[in-house]
Amino acid sequence: MAAADPSSDALNDQESELYDRQIRLWGVQAQKRMSSSKVLYAGFTGVCAEAAKNLVLAGIHATIQDHRAATYADLGTNFFLTAEDVGKNRAASCQARLQQLNNLAKVDAEERSLEELEDAYFKQFTCICLSGAPLHQQKRIDGICRSAGVFLYVVESFGFYGYLMLDLGQGFSYRKELGENKGLSDPIPVAFPSIEEAVGAPWSTLKNRWGPVSKVYALAQLMLEFEEKHGRRPGASDGDTMTSVAQQCLKRNGLPTDFIASDETAVLCAQAQVEINPVCAVLGGILGQEVIKALSQKGTPAHNVFLFDGTTSEGKVMLTPPAAK
C-alpha cells in the first residue's frame, strides 16, 4: 500500500490525480489531514456501509467493527455483503470489498464486540461512527472520545427515518466558507454537549419558533429507551409495550401523551430494526459530509443532532440541550 507521507505538505502524483475533483473542493491541506485520519465504523450496518464507502473513497483510513454474523436481510442494505457471507462475521466479510474502493486508504476489520473492546482501543481513531449500539454503550464510548479528543457520531437508520448525533468535544472550532475568492472566516468555536447531556434534555425544552420537538428525534429516543429497558430494540409485536414506554417518556419529558399516537409507535416498532437503502444513502452521505467537515475544519458542523424524514425528504439540524437564552 502506498500510504501518504504525512511529513510532506504536498500530495504525490497518484494522490493528486485520484483526488483531483475533491481537492478542488477542500484543498490540499484538508486532504492531507484526511489521508492521515482513521475512522472506526462500530456496527457495520447499512448506514455505516454507505458512510464508509464515501469516506474510504475520499482517502480516509477505516476500521470496521462488528461482532454479528451477516443475515440475508443485511444484503438489502449492505452492498459489501453477498449471499456467500451469510452466517459469517459482517466486518470480516466486508473488509476486502471496502478496501477495493481505494488502495491509498487502509481498511481493517475488528470482530470483537464493543463490550470486549477496552477503552484504550477507541483512542487510536480520529472519528468513531457508532451504529446500532445501545444508549449505555453510546455514553461509555462518548466518555472515552471526549477525554481523548476523538469525534463521535452516533447514527441510526430505522425505516424511513434517520438520526445522527454528533459530539465533537468541547474545544472544536471550524472556519466558514465565505464564498468564492473570499476565503475562510476566522475560527469559530463551538462546544458540543456530551451524549448524556444531549439525551437528558427534556423534550419540552426542544421546541423552537417553528414548532415542538421533532417527531423523528422523539421516536429515536423512544427506540433507545425501549432498548435500555428490554435489552433489545423493539420489534413488530412490541406495540403494546412500546405504547406504555411512550406514555412514560412523554410525561417525563413534559409533552402531552397524545404527542405520539399509538399508530406511530406501532410503525416505530415495525421499523426499528429495519434499514432501507435510500435512507441509508442519504444519512450515510450526510454523515460522510459531517466527518469531512470536522476533519477539514471547514463548514458549519451539524450542532448537534441531524434528523432525516424520508417520507418528506426533510433533513434538519437541531441542538439539544437548547442554547441558554
Binding site: R21, Q22, R24, L25, E50, K53, N54, L57, A58, N277, P278, V279, C280, A281, V282, G284, G285, I286, G288, Q289, I292, G310, S313
Partner: peptide, 17 residues
C-alpha cells in the same frame, strides 16, 4: 467542477425516495 461521493450519494438516495 469539484465533485465528491457524499453529495452524489445523498442526491441519488433522494431520487429513489
Amino acid at each position: 467542477i469539484a465533485a465528491i461521493a457524499t453529495t452524489n450519494a445523498i442526491i441519488a438516495g433522494l431520487q429513489v425516495l
